[in-house]
Computed example of a mutant assay.
Amino acid sequence: MTHYVPGLVVRADGVPAAVEELRLPEIGPGQVRVRIRAAGVCHSDLSMVNGTLRPPHPLVLGHEAAGEVVETGERVSRASAGDHVVLNWQPACRSCWFCDRGEVWLCSTSSGVAALENGMTVDGEPVHVTLGVGAFAGEVVVPENAVIPVPAELDFDLAALLGCAVLTGTGAVRNTAKVAPGDSVVVIGLGGVGLSVVTAARAAGAAQVIAVDLAETKKGLAEAAGATDFVVSSDTLSKDIRARTSGRGADHAFEAVGRAATIRAAWRATRRGGRVTVVGMGAADDMVQLSALDIFSSARTLQTSVYGQADPDLEIPALARDVVAGTLNLSHLITDRITLADVPTAFDRMARGEGARSVVVL
Rank of each mutant, 00 (worst) to 15 (best):
L314F: 13
V306G: 03
C107V: 08
E20G: 05
A39I: 03
R75V: 13
L330A: 06
R275Y: 00
V212M: 09
Q90P: 06
R94A: 14
S234F: 13
G326L: 11
V323K: 00
S95Y: 08
A222E: 04
N145W: 07
G355R: 00
Y4P: 08
L328G: 07
I334V: 14
N175Y: 07
S77E: 13
A137R: 04
G138W: 02
D213S: 12
L53I: 12
L87K: 06
E21R: 15
V185A: 03
L116N: 08
L87A: 08
T345V: 13
V361H: 04
A356E: 05
A160V: 09
P344C: 07
Q208L: 11
V86G: 01
A320T: 12
L195E: 05
A39C: 13
T277C: 13
F136A: 07
S196M: 11
A180R: 15
T335Q: 02
S110F: 04
E315Y: 06
A12R: 10
A172Y: 00
P312S: 14
D155I: 04
P181I: 02
S331T: 15
G163P: 03
R337I: 13
V187D: 01
R337V: 10
V197A: 02
P344Q: 07
A243I: 07
P58L: 11
D83M: 06
P56N: 08
T245Q: 07
E117K: 14
I188A: 01
G273T: 05
V179Q: 02
P317W: 01
L293E: 15
T121I: 08
M281I: 13
C42N: 02
S47N: 15
T2R: 15
G258Q: 00
M48Y: 12
S196F: 02
V323G: 01
L190W: 01
V179F: 02
F296P: 06
I338F: 12
L131T: 10
R54G: 15
E68R: 13
A283T: 08
W89S: 10
E139T: 04
D240M: 06
L214M: 14
V5W: 09
R268F: 11
L106R: 11
L190R: 02
S233A: 15
A211L: 06
G247Q: 06
P29D: 12
L293Q: 14
A284E: 12
R242N: 13
L237I: 10
A135P: 08
A341P: 09
V279S: 03
E20H: 12
L221I: 11
G73H: 04
L154E: 06
A159G: 03
G273E: 08
G51R: 08
G192K: 03
T236H: 11
G67R: 00
L195W: 01
M287A: 15
L22Q: 09
F156K: 00
D286C: 05
I295P: 01
D229V: 00
A115P: 03
A292D: 13
S238K: 10
R202F: 09
